[in-house]
């Protein structure tokens, strides 16, 4: 059981950002000139953008690498990580090597104005089948409605609310993309874990009151409130 505590609990949230990857080509001096030309066309291109430097294939040693980072800094390009550096060439004073990067499409250079993506409208996901043990349902764009039960060992993660017209015996994680208004409702309340907007409770913390009953779960400030479903 978690101890009662007056301070709000520490929250952990995962968030992914898109970083711009700069991959200088040899010779670096010429590449910097090209970069200057780009900066003249669009002075604010790098402002506020996280940049990862990809130096694989360049074979720079520690001194050259530090020089390149300084040259970029002078051009208002702040490097937050260095990829593909020789082992041992990173270290004190240099940004760390990031891990787990996934490639996405090329970012349009300022010649063509970057199209502004309209915010995606929330969409609902309907499931007619029960969610079986071991399955994960991930839907970050809106609500999830499940006509059956969520089994022990199954996991449902929604950006919005989760509605279960059967028993909830597994994990329900609502408001996963940062939505404190998200709720979880179910016809039979036997969850293993509940979370709304990063705040979570395990079955052990929940107590027996609502067990087996229809229930709804919502966030009240920094605490998870469980109420009967009228």
């Amino acid at each position: 059981m978690t101890q009662p505590n007056s301070r709000p609990p520490i929250r952990f949230r995962g968030r992914s950002f898109m970083a711009l990857v700069l991959a200088p080509s040899a010779p670096v001096h010429d590449w910097l000139e090209d970069l200057d030309a780009l900066a003249r066309r669009s002075p604010a291109f790098f402002v506020g953008r996280p940049v990862i430097l990809d130096v694989s294939g360049l074979g720079l040693d520690r001194v050259d690498l530090a020089g390149l980072v300084t040259d970029l800094k002078a051009r208002d390009v702040t490097v937050m990580g260095i990829e593909g550096a020789k082992s041992g060439s990173l270290g004190e004073g240099l940004p760390p090597a990031p891990a787990g990067g996934r490639p996405v499409d090329d970012v349009a250079t300022p010649d063509a104005p970057t199209p502004v993506e309209p915010p995606r409208a929330p969409r609902s996901l309907f499931l007619d089948q029960p969610v079986r043990s071991g399955q994960t349902i991930l839907h970050l764009d809106g609500d999830i409605t499940i006509m059956g039960s969520v089994a022990s060992g199954a996991e449902v993660i929604a950006g919005g609310s989760i509605h279960i017209y059967g028993a909830l015996r597994g994990r329900a994680i609502a408001g996963a993309s940062g939505n404190p208004d998200a709720r979880i409702t179910c016809r039979k309340f036997e969850p293993e874990l509940l979370a709304i907007d990063g705040l979570y409770r395990t079955a052990d913390d929940l107590g027996p009151e609502r067990r087996g009953q229809p229930a709804q779960v919502r966030l009240d400030g920094d605490s998870i409130k469980i109420a009967a479903l009228e």
């Binding site: 079986r132 043990s133 071991g134 022990s152 060992g153």
Partner: peptide, 16 residues
């Protein structure tokens, strides 16, 4: 028995 039932539930998911 609960562990057998949960494992069967997992298998039903794979069958589907």
């Amino acid at each position: 028995e609960v562990s057998s039932v949960r494992d069967s539930d997992r298998i039903i998911g794979l069958l589907d």
